[in-house]
Design a protein around this nucleic acid. Structure first.
Lengths: 248, 248
DNA sequence: GTTCAGAGTGTACATTATACACATAGTTAA
DNA sequence: TTAACTATGTGTATAATGTACACTCTGAAC
């Protein structure tokens, strides 16, 4: 049984990435503070999905709880990308006003542990209730107003994602259970911000024996229907190369 | 001015790696608890170098402070490898006895942020005072008694090091300012636990334009003296390849 | 001057990366 | 029914990189 007593100086923030077959998106929460009398909007910006951890809760569990609360999803790719404890994390007058407003006994200096989550957009749009939560294209974040140091956390997470995606088979976490090679190529292109030659990309995928063709094709598309594939973690684990050599 | 008031539930642990031209070592602190009357040794094992953070101190600064305290060194490669907050971090009777003994008002559940440090052994052995601190070969750690979850932290750090060393030029941090190619090869072999072909290794190094030969050779060695080289970070930054493609 | 020990070098072959253009299948609209 | 459309899917030649493998060289020590 979870006590729900929070640890005042430790929180977890989730950078939740999603892919909509076109571009990479991030799930953000709108923060709004209105003056109680005039109704004037004093603060309106966005934050990452985050909250304090509970006293009897692991860091990983806290992140999973927050993710589930927002998306309704369990068993999602979720991995730490860093711990942040700069003294000036809450430096703007806006953020101070906010903390003042919610006055829940949070500590002055909060250490936050950042988690990176990857989810398949198609699953989530259904579950999303009419809350103040929405997907934003990753490319638009640079011009957004964000709370605390969340813009910095976001870019740190994005860099971690870009690093990891080159070396581990995590791109599949952004796709449905089955997908076409073109969709897979688009994920890589969206995450890395480049484009690849179609033939060379497919040659590469052909060497990934853990990407397995299904007896299933696209239907109802106004062009030649594409073959569906799935990612097999078992085959990946068995066939992954030792890769001892180093690349610099 | 630092207040020295500790944050009771947040600590930093440093996994300090060193290389002695032969093998990879780690710096550990001996922990000993004697019965006050009988003098009998109740606990004797090893811990990572770690301590609570201060209230007005960044995580990175806390790690640098701990590192400096032990080795006397500044400006060392120091990087986070994870945050750890399992509820059962302090689970053994031994660890509870210890916390009971030092009774400094630490919290029940402490979140620790792990830092990985790489240092050149030759610099440190000089500065090390006769404290309860010593280098241990990495290979011997598996059979050592260690406090808390520090063995787990250690192996997590080692894995992070092995992952990083393949992709970033951090092996140089384990060597003196100038070094021979054989020494560089031995670092890679010690860290990755493999061996490389000498000719192929040198061919690889020849392509790293940031490894620059000096007008300087070994002296007084009973064999052909080796050429010295240095690592130039500037050249590295300028010439590093975009490396957009992915490798799985 | 002979021995010793580690430094330093080259070549052939296999694998992988890169650049590049056209036929195919199914839907839609004339 | 035919033609146009759209994204799928395929091959080849060349360059670059990885891998396997054995001997000469230099200086110190005896």
């Amino acid at each position: 049984m979870i006590s729900h007593k929070i640890v005042p100086n430790i929180s977890v923030d989730c950078v939740i990435f999603g892919f909509d077959f076109e571009k990479l998106n991030v799930l953000l929460v709108e923060r709004e503070l209105k003056d109680e009398k005039s109704g004037e909007i004093l603060i309106k910006d966005h934050t990452l999905a985050g909250y304090h951890i509970f006293e009897d809760e692991d860091l990983d569990s806290a992140a999973a709880r927050i993710l589930k609360g927002l998306t309704g999803l369990d068993n999602i790719f979720l991995e730490q990308f860093g711990a942040f404890g700069q003294l000036d994390r809450v430096s703007s007058p806006k953020d101070k006003m906010w903390l003042d407003y919610i006055k829940k006994g949070f500590a002055d200096r909060i250490i936050t542990v950042g988690y990176l989550a990857l989810i398949d957009n198609t699953k989530v749009t259904l579950t999303l209730k009419d809350r103040n939560v929405a997907w934003f294209p990753v490319a638009t974040v640079k011009d957004m107003e964000m709370a605390f140091d969340h813009k910095y956390l976001f870019y740190t997470a994005l860099e971690a994602l870009q690093r990891k995606v080159k070396v581990e088979p995590i791109a599949f976490q952004l796709l449905p259970d089955y997908f076409t090679i073109s969709q897979l190529q688009k994920v890589y292109e969206a995450v890395l911000g480049t484009s690849f030659d179609k033939r060379n990309f497919r040659k590469k995928v052909a060497q990934m024996h853990y990407v397995i063709p299904l007896r299933k094709k696209q239907q109802g598309v106004p062009h030649k229907p594409a073959q569906y594939y799935l990612f097999s973690r078992e085959v990946y684990e068995k066939t992954r190369k030792a890769r001892i050599s180093f690349i610099i």
